[in-house]
């Protein structure tokens, strides 16, 4: 039977009395890259934090390959296989690159395979191998982003979520990062990516969702969304 890699239905959450998400439905097919588009403050980060268990959901559910991850503590969500590289990187600034990556392999399943995964991460981002004993705070923005993605990969995700990985990067670095993300897809995992570079991300993504007013207002393949007049006007300024 077909099981989506990630399935979210009717997800509602927010902060205090403010509802940021008001019934979000979203699905990731195994092995695909799915883009999540939305204006600043639309609730994209809140959606990831809710799935991760850092923000409590009021209603709805989330499933990973048919297994509920709803209401789990954050570390259990990671163990189940949903791992995010958070907005703003959130590295452990006083630790070396190697230590940052090793923290990513904290849960038992990931820890047992840590050396193999580490090799794979170094292969993906060779600069991290070179700088492995350097403190994370001494890296450039692009390199820090690689550490954040690498750290998430170390947890052996089934679904990897990337929250604005290109934020603050020079255009050339953005291109390289997107190349790496395309390579990650070959690792047989599914990627949910939040991006301000709407054009670039929709060209790469298999499918995309647009989050507006706390709900999914639009969805379709990358090509479909790029051809949509509402999306073009609102997010591409065309």
């Amino acid at each position: 039977m077909y099981k989506p890699a990630l399935k979210i239905a009717g997800l509602t959450s927010g902060y205090g009395d403010i509802r940021v998400l008001r019934g979000v439905d979203l699905e990731l097919k195994p092995g695909t890259i799915v883009a999540l588009i939305g204006a600043n403050g639309a609730g994209k980060t809140t959606l990831l934090r809710t799935i991760s268990g850092l923000v409590k959901a009021d209603s709805g559910f989330s499933e990973l390959y048919g297994e509920s991850i709803h209401g789990l503590a954050p570390h259990r969500v990671v163990q189940a296989g949903f791992v995010q590289s958070p907005e703003g990187k959130q590295l452990f600034a006083d630790m070396t690159i190697l230590e940052n990556l090793m923290v990513g392999a904290h849960s038992k399943r990931a820890y047992e395979r840590r050396n193999e995964t580490l090799e794979e991460v170094y292969e993906l981002f060779p600069i991290l191998a070179e700088r492995r004993y350097q403190r994370a705070s001494t890296l450039s923005g692009g390199q820090q982003q690689m550490v954040a993605v690498g750290r998430a990969l170390m947890a052996l995700p089934k679904v990897l979520a990337l929250d604005e990985p290109s934020l603050g990067l020079a255009p050339i670095m953005v291109d390289r990062l997107f190349e790496s993300i395309a390579k990650i897809r070959e690792r047989n995992l599914s990627i949910l990516i939040i991006e301000q570079n709407v054009f670039q991300v929709l060209e790469m993504a298999d499918y995309g969702y647009v989050l507006e007013n706390g709900q999914i207002s639009l969805s379709g393949t990358g090509a479909e969304l790029l051809g949509n007049s509402h999306l073009r006007a609102t997010y591409l300024g065309l």
Partner: peptide, 13 residues
């Protein structure tokens, strides 16, 4: 150093 990032790395904070 960062409890949210620790939680998102699978640590039982």
């Amino acid at each position: 150093q960062n409890r949210d990032a620790a939680a998102m790395s699978g640590i039982d904070v």
